[in-house]
Design a protein around this nucleic acid. Structure first.
Length: 699
DNA sequence: CAGTGAGCGAGCTTCCGCTTGACTT
C-alpha cells in the first residue's frame, strides 16, 4: 500500500509521473483549480482587507472528496505547475486537505522528465505564500473589474453583456482596427520594371526583371501615370548597363520551437485552424494516441506554454536524430539556445514532439488528417530549431539607364539547405505539385544569369503598373492572439476562450475568418473607453504585472495593491452609473419621414444592429432598414441597397424596393464610376484579410 | 430572406485562469 500521494493538475501528467515514480506513489489529478470565488456573487469584502470567500465549485466537489479520502494518513506532495497559478492551486489544496495527511509538501519541476521529477522529490519545500498572494491579487482584481462593470452594461446597454480586463482590450483592438480601415484613404503609386537579358549568347535566354529604384542617387516615388510614363518614354530607347554586382553570403536561422501563441498563429495561417480547433487537436496529441500495438503514447509535450525551453534529454535525442537522418553537417556547432519572452512564466517546456524519432510520416496512419497536419508543424519546427543555418548566396545587381536611372534586382541561390531540409522533405512527402507557400517565411527567389560588371543589356520590355496602398487588415485569430501576447494580455490557456467570448456576446462576428466588430461591440467599447480609460488602456495589464512581481518579491503587500486600485476604480463605476448614456433608450434623429404616418423616423438599436423606426411608436409600428446609400444596380430600379440578414444570420444586401425588385448580393457592389480603367488597377484595397478559414469547423 | 423597439419588472446575466469530463436521453 503506497504511503505517498502526489497531486498534479492534469490526468495525462499524472500518468507520466506515475510511471517515473513507481509503485510507492499514488498520483492523482486536481483537474485545475479546486477552489474559486463564487460564481453567483462578488465574493470579495472590499471593506475588510478584500477578504475573498472561496468555495469549491460543484464541478470540483467529487474530485476534492476523492483527494481528501486518498490523502488520509499519507505524505502528500503538491506538484502543480511551478508558477503563480500552480502555487495557488497548491495552496487551495493545502487548505482543503490540511487535516487529513501525515505531511504536506510542495514539489516543483519545469519539465516532465525522469530526472527532473526525481530531483524535485529530493528537494520538497513549503508553499510560497508570496506567489499565492500575487495570484489572489490578480484573481480579485479581475473579479472586481468584471463583476462591477458588467452589471453597468446590463443597465445601460443590454442584458447578458460582459466586460473584463482581457476581453475588453481584445474588443478594443478589433474596434479600433475597424475605425482605421474606415478612415483609410488609398494612395496611388506606380512601379516601373524592366525585363532585361544579357547580350552574350550563353546567357542570353535568361530574362530577368529589375525594378526602378533611384534617380540621381535619390529614392524615387512614382505617384501617378504621367510621371511614370514620362520616365518610361525617356528610357525606351536608352542603354541599360550593369553598374554594380555584389555577392554576399547570407545565413538564415531556424526559429524557436512553438509556444501556444506561435502555434495558434501558424496553425491559423498555414492550416486555417481557428485557435480553438488548434487547441482541441493539440490536446488529443498530448493525451495520447494509440500507435501500433502499444498503449496510447503522448505525442507532444504540454500545449499551454509561454516558454521555448527544451529539456536536455530532448536536445540530446534530436541532435542524434539529425546526425543520423541528415548527416553531421546538418548540426550547428553548438546547440541553438532560444530566449523566451521576458514576461514568460516558464512553467513548461516549449511544445515539441515527445520523441524526435516519431517523424510525421511514420505515424501518419494512426492520426486523423487534422492531427497529422498539426503534429507535422510541431515536429518540423522542433527538429529544424536544432539544425544548422541555411546558407544563401545573394547577388545584388544595379543597372544604370540614361545616365541617371538606377534599376535594382537581387537573385538568391541556396547553397546549403540546413534546417530548410526538414520543411522541404515534408513538402516533398506530400508530393504537392501546386505551388505551396514555403514554410519559415521564404519568399520566392529569382535566379539571375551570370552578369559582368559594365556589360550592356538588351531591354525587352518596360512595364509600368499602378498600385494602391492598402488599409490594415482586420484581425483574425492569428493576428489577434499575436497582438494580445505581445502586450502581455491573457495567458496561453485563455487566448482561444477570449475570442469565443467576443463572438458569444455578439461583440464581433467572423466574416470569412476576419473578426469584425458589431454595432454592439462598437457601442460597448465607446462607453468603456469614455468611462474607464485606465482599464481600457493597453498598458493596464503590464502595470498590474509589475505590481504582481513586487508582491512575489515580497516588496509589496498584496492587499495594499488592491487598496490602491479600488477607490478610483469604484468611483469611476459610480460616476458611470449616473453619467453613462442609456444606450437602450438611445434614439438618433434622422431626416427621413415615415411613409405611413408622416412622422420623422429615428434610428434604434436592436438585436440585429441599427434600423429605422417610426417615432410614433407604438401607434405606428413601421420599420425599415437603413440604406447603404448605394443605388440598386438593376436597370429601371430607383431603389437603394439595404443590409439585411437571413434567418440563419448571414448578412446580405437586397433592394429597398423588395418585393417589386428582387436584386440580391452577398457583397456591396462598388458604386458606378466614370473611369473605365478600374480593371487595370492591379490591387484592390478591401477584403485584404487573409487567408480564408475552413467554414467546416463548428464553433 | 423581409425581423428588430416600452411599459409591469421576478430573477437572471458577468470576470480570468487552471483543467477536462458527462446530471441523463
Amino acid at each position: 500500500m503506497a504511503k505517498r500521494l502526489v497531486i498534479v493538475e492534469s490526468p495525462a501528467k499524472a500518468k507520466t509521473i506515475g510511471k517515473y515514480l513507481g509503485r510507492d506513489y499514488i498520483v492523482e489529478a486536481s483537474f485545475g483549480h479546486v477552489r474559486d470565488l463564487p460564481r453567483s456573487k462578488m465574493g470579495v469584502d472590499v471593506d475588510n482587507q478584500f477578504e475573498p470567500k472561496y468555495v469549491v465549485p460543484t464541478k470540483a466537489r467529487k474530485r476534492v472528496t476523492k483527494l481528501k479520502k486518498t490523502a488520509k494518513g499519507k505524505d502528500v506532495f503538491l506538484a502543480p505547475d511551478p508558477d503563480r497559478e500552480g502555487e495557488a492551486i497548491s495552496w487551495h489544496l493545502f487548505e482543503l486537505l490540511e487535516k487529513n495527511p501525515k505531511s504536506i509538501k510542495r514539489v516543483e519541476f519545469h519539465e516532465i522528465t525522469k530526472d527532473a521529477v526525481r530531483r524535485a522529490f529530493e528537494h520538497p519545500r513549503e508553499i510560497d505564500q508570496r506567489l499565492v498572494n500575487a495570484q489572489q491579487a490578480r484573481r480579485i482584481l479581475d473579479r472586481i473589474v468584471g463583476y462591477e462593470i458588467s452589471p453597468l452594461l446590463w443597465k445601460k446597454v443590454g442584458k447578458g453583456l460582459s466586460a473584463g480586463r482581457v476581453q475588453s482590450i481584445a474588443l478594443r483592438l478589433i474596434v479600433e482596427r475597424e475605425d482605421e480601415i474606415r478612415r483609410f484613404v488609398p494612395k496611388e503609386y506606380w512601379s516601373l520594371e524592366a525585363q532585361l537579358s544579357s547580350k552574350r549568347p550563353e546567357e542570353k535566354d535568361k530574362v530577368f526583371v529589375a525594378k526602378l529604384d533611384r534617380v540621381n542617387q535619390e529614392k524615387i516615388d512614382l505617384n501617378n501615370a504621367e510621371e511614370t510614363e514620362k520616365i518610361k518614354t525617356a528610357l525606351e530607347k536608352s542603354e541599360f548597363q550593369v553598374s554594380s554586382i555584389e555577392k554576399k553570403e547570407r545565413n538564415r536561422k531556424p526559429q524557436a520551437p512553438y509556444t501556444t501563441s506561435k502555434l495558434q498563429q501558424e496553425a491559423y495561417n498555414r492550416l486555417g485552424f481557428p485557435a480553438a480547433k488548434t487547441m482541441r487537436i493539440a490536446q488529443s496529441l498530448y493525451e495520447g494516441v494509440e500507435i501500433g500495438e502499444d498503449a496510447a503514447v503522448g505525442l507532444i509535450t504540454y500545449m499551454r506554454t509561454d516558454s521555448v525551453r527544451v529539456a536536455q534529454t530532448a536536445l540530446d535525442e534530436v541532435t542524434k536524430y539529425i546526425k543520423e537522418h541528415f548527416g553531421p553537417e546538418y548540426l550547428p556547432e553548438t546547440p541553438h539556445v532560444y530566449k523566451s519572452k521576458k514576461s514568460a512564466q516558464e512553467a513548461h517546456e516549449a511544445i515539441r514532439p515527445t520523441s524526435a524519432y516519431r517523424p510525421p510520416e511514420k505515424i501518419k496512419s494512426y492520426l486523423s488528417m487534422d492531427e497529422f497536419k498539426l503534429y507535422e508543424l510541431i515536429w518540423c519546427k522542433f527538429v529544424a530549431s536544432q539544425m544548422a543555418h541555411a546558407k544563401d548566396q545573394v547577388t545584388s545587381i544595379e543597372i544604370l539607364a540614361a545616365e541617371k536611372y538606377i534599376f535594382k534586382t537581387t537573385g538568391t541561390i541556396n547553397v546549403f539547405p540546413g534546417f530548410l531540409k526538414v520543411f522541404a522533405d515534408a513538402l516533398h512527402a506530400k508530393k504537392k505539385k501546386e505551388k505551396e507557400e514555403q514554410k519559415e517565411g521564404e519568399e520566392t527567389h529569382q535566379a539571375l544569369p551570370e552578369l559582368i560588371q559594365g556589360e550592356s543589356l538588351d531591354l525587352h520590355e518596360l512595364i509600368s503598373s499602378q498600385h494602391f496602398t492598402k488599409p490594415p487588415a482586420r484581425f483574425n485569430d492569428a493576428s489577434l492572439v499575436k497582438a494580445l501576447e505581445e502586450d502581455g494580455i491573457g495567458r496561453p490557456s485563455t487566448y482561444a476562450p477570449t475570442i469565443h467570448t467576443l463572438l458569444a456576446r455578439e461583440y464581433a462576428e467572423r466574416q470569412s475568418g476576419a473578426l469584425v466588430p458589431t454595432d454592439l461591440g462598437e457601442v460597448v467599447v465607446k462607453q468603456l473607453v469614455e468611462h474607464f480609460p485606465t482599464i481600457m488602456d493597453i498598458e493596464f495589464t503590464a502595470n498590474m504585472e509589475d505590481e504582481l512581481d513586487k508582491i512575489e518579491e515580497g516588496d509589496v503587500d498584496w492587499v495594499q495593491v488592491l487598496k490602491n486600485f479600488y477607490p478610483p476604480f469604484h468611483q469611476a463605476v459610480e460616476t458611470a452609473q449616473v453619467e453613462m448614456k442609456d444606450m437602450k433608450q438611445e434614439l438618433i434623429e434622422t431626416e427621413e419621414t415615415c411613409e405611413k404616418c408622416g412622422k420623422p423616423m429615428v434610428i434604434r438599436r436592436g438585436r440585429y444592429g441599427k434600423f429605422l423606426a417610426c417615432s410614433g411608436f407604438p401607434e405606428c409600428r413601421n420599420t425599415k432598414p437603413i440604406s447603404t446609400g448605394v443605388a440598386c444596380p438593376q436597370p429601371d430600379c430607383s431603389g437603394t441597397l439595404v443590409k439585411r440578414r437571413s434567418r440563419r444570420g448571414q448578412p446580405f444586401y437586397g433592394c429597398s424596393n423588395y418585393p417589386k425588385c428582387t436584386f440580391i448580393a452577398n457583397k456591396l457592389p462598388k458604386p458606378e464610376e466614370d473611369k473605365a480603367d478600374q480593371s487595370s488597377a492591379s490591387e484592390t484595397n478591401h477584403d485584404s484579410h487573409k487567408p480564408s478559414v475552413n467554414d467546416s469547423t463548428p464553433q
